[in-house]
């Protein structure tokens, strides 16, 4: 057993079973398990809060540029 990255193959045609049947459709939310759906909301909310905190603070400081 090794955890080495498997070497890739160049494909001549798409593999029939490449789209997993377990609902791992990255563009839709229909196949996402409930616990991962919750995790998605929590993770993106955390990101939005962190960035929002930073942007609001910077905008307050930057407003001095035009208000003197």
């Amino acid at each position: 057993m090794t955890d080495q990255e498997p070497r890739p193959e160049r494909r001549t045609e798409p593999m029939a079973d490449e789209v997993s049947g377990d609902g791992q459709d990255g563009t839709e939310t229909t196949g996402i398990a409930p616990r991962y759906r919750v995790l998605l909301v929590v993770a993106w909310t955390l990101v939005a809060l962190l960035l929002g905190y930073g942007v609001v603070n910077i905008v307050i400081t930057a407003s001095q540029l035009f208000t003197g």
């Binding site: 377990d22 791992q24 990255g26 196949g31 996402i32 398990a33 616990r35 991962y36 998605l40 993770a43």
Partner: peptide, 8 residues
Amino acid sequence: PTGYSRWL
């Protein structure tokens, strides 16, 4: 695992 989302 099954049910994972790539948007994570």
